[in-house]
Design a protein around this nucleic acid. Structure first.
Length: 306
DNA sequence: TATATTTGACCCAA
DNA sequence: TTGGGTCAAATATA
């Protein structure tokens, strides 16, 4: 929807992100075969730079989305954006604060952990969206009934990058979770795009730090680099950039933040119809990546989102 | 048995 | 009229 309004810009951003991600992937390849610590550090820096640039572009696009969301329906003032309407009524969902968060799946952490935001959500619907490959999931706060919490979120997997999820939040949590989660997970209160950029960068940095720590540890133990136990499994982003060959999720477990297992839905066919989801072939999988088509740059397997 | 998920049907804004 | 969002009955799971 939003894409159509600024198709040119969107296409340009897509190209730029694609180039940056390709660049990052190439660096990751070099990273794998690099023998010296110095080279690896240099490459790690380059990878981080590529990610940072990509995220900056994505976040720019996200900001545009947010501003549209705020302006949508003719919002009175744009400079009131940091003063969300606190009066939330059932009759005016438009007035509810709304923001979008983009999340890149962290394979090592599991899909649910990556998407986790500290709140408990209950799924109340799923629908195929016109022009989107993947269905959109509709979630509401678990405590909607008991505490009247009106917060909802929509989760949409990106067409271009299946590792990318766009999560749209609407409404603020009025339940008891808000107090508990708010102190540890600020995403609900901070500028979401900014927060997300930091989150993603932190993940990358953490991954690389883990690698450095591992490498250092093994180096000190006089283990040859080649015998480092599955380096990539400790570096989700190294894995992610592995030429799109997602053959590394064998041990990834997925349990939802509700304490139940998440089903990874695969529509019967790859194309989503505009009608309400009718995917009788819901296949509960341990890992949604098992069927990822490595021969397809972005598409292929993995029809549903989660 | 309680709770969560799935999914067809319905509502409503554009 | 269309399509996104929600409802609620049916079903699954713990």
């Amino acid at each position: 929807m939003e894409k159509k309004s600024s198709n040119g810009d969107w296409e340009k951003m897509k190209r730029e992100i694609n180039e940056l991600m390709t660049e990052g992937r190439d660096y990751a390849h070099q990273f794998r075969s690099a023998s010296s610590q110095e080279t690896r550090e240099h490459l790690a820096k380059k990878i981080l730079e590529s990610y940072h640039k990509s995220l900056t572009i994505m976040n720019y696009s996200g900001e545009q989305d947010s501003s549209h969301a705020h302006d949508g329906g003719g919002s009175p003032k744009s400079d009131d954006s940091d003063q969300e309407p606190l009066v939330i009524t059932k009759s005016s969902k438009k007035s509810m604060p709304k923001w979008t968060r983009k999340v890149i799946i962290t394979p090592g952490a599991g899909i649910d952990r990556t998407l986790e935001d500290g709140f408990s959500w209950r799924k109340y619907g799923q629908k195929d969206i016109l022009g989107a490959k993947f269905p959109r999931g509709y979630f509401r706060c678990t405590y909607r009934k008991s505490q009247g919490c009106e917060a909802t979120k929509h989760v949409q997997r990106s067409d271009e990058n299946q590792m990318l999820f766009e999560i749209s939040y609407r409404g603020k949590h009025s339940c008891s979770q808000a107090a508990n989660v708010g102190s540890t997970i600020p995403a609900q209160n901070l500028e979401p795009n900014q927060t997300q950029e930091h989150e993603n960068l932190d993940i990358v940095k953490e991954s690389l730090d883990n690698y450095n720590h591992e490498a250092h540890l093994h180096h000190n133990l006089h283990y040859p680099m080649s015998s480092t136990p599955n380096l990539e499994s400790n570096n989700p982003y190294m894995l992610q950039m592995r030429d799109h060959n997602m053959d590394f999720f064998g041990s990834t477990s997925f349990s939802s933040d509700l304490g139940t297992n998440i089903n990874y839905n695969f529509p019967a066919s790859g194309s989503a119809s505009h009608s309400t989801s009718n995917s009788p072939s819901t296949i509960p999988l341990e890992s949604p990546f098992d069927s990822y088509d490595p021969n397809h740059p972005y598409g292929g397997g993995f029809g549903g989102f989660y």
